[in-house]
Design a protein around this nucleic acid. Structure first.
Lengths: 151, 151
DNA sequence: TATATTTGCATCGTGTACGATATAATTCAA
DNA sequence: TTGAATTATATCGTACACGATGCAAATATA
């Protein structure tokens, strides 16, 4: 029995579990909007700035096109976005919000507070979350750098 | 533009990204062992204690049978585990390591250190990781409690 | 003890993730 | 300028996740 292989010693398992449970916590809030959690992320990117290329969204969410293209196709079928091919560069695909997609922001703006409200009086204070975010940013930065180095 | 909908303000997005990047970081280390990251988690559970029920593994990893059953079936096909139905209780399925599955622990024991080594001299110290783990545990605990309350 | 309920696991359908490959448009180079 | 490399997306195959449903074994209840 190797101590380093104990599940309880695995940071990655904690992050993996927290990620899944958080996504599950979002589900009942996003279901009324007809969004999955990854789709909600795409919407946030587009609400910040409309008319972005697939590649822009990829970069922002750190996802590849093989994940995003099918997702954007489903979102287009749902009438949330429109995909337009070849404007300046014929290879690019521009993703734009539909009116429906725009309007969804009004309903979505309540979602984040629903979750942070649930964090109150739980032993996890705002400063803990702040520190958590900072450490995760550093960690992600490191992992991205290592990833670059592979190519 | 609602401030609370900015991607940069989303803790969940950070965790989601960190989780994916960490899993990606494990991939090249686990590929030689013929394991995916979730399968590696199952193996860790079984290395800690062999001969566990599907339900035990579910509870430990906080995954449901609809995820684990197909995964265990794949692992059985790979010759890592054996699934035995109905010992005391005919509904249960006992999951046991094969000799091959047991032997894999020897190779796997190097995996964790490969990753922690990569964390050295990066600005993220052991105490940061410790605190990160603690906060995630609390967070996960809260999310689990909320989840219970839904039933 | 016959029936209803619960339990443990399996199956199904949909939606991500992601490596590998394909394809068409653009750019580079000889 | 034409063929080679590059780039931006798309497609394909496999493996999770997870809600919903199915099913047989065990348990509870009348």
């Amino acid at each position: 029995m190797y101590e380093q292989l104990r599940l309880d010693n695995q940071l990655c398992f904690r992050i993996y579990t927290a990620s899944r449970l958080l996504t599950q916590a979002y589900r009942p809030l996003l279901e009324p909007l007809g969004l999955t959690y990854p789709q909600y992320l795409v919407m946030m990117v587009l609400w910040e700035k409309d008319n972005q290329l697939v590649g822009d969204i990829c970069q922002r969410l750190r996802l590849d096109t093989n994940t995003l293209t099918p997702m954007l196709q489903r979102m287009e079928k749902e009438g949330l976005v429109i995909r337009t091919r070849g404007i300046a560069d014929g290879r690019q695909t521009l993703v734009s919000l539909t009116r429906k997609g725009h309007h969804l922001e009004e309903q979505a703006k309540e979602v984040p507070s629903c979750l942070t409200r649930g964090m109150q009086d739980t032993g996890v204070g705002p400063e803990d979350l702040q520190r958590l975010a900072a450490t995760l940013d550093t960690l992600t930065g490191i992992l991205e750098t290592k990833k670059e180095g592979q190519h």
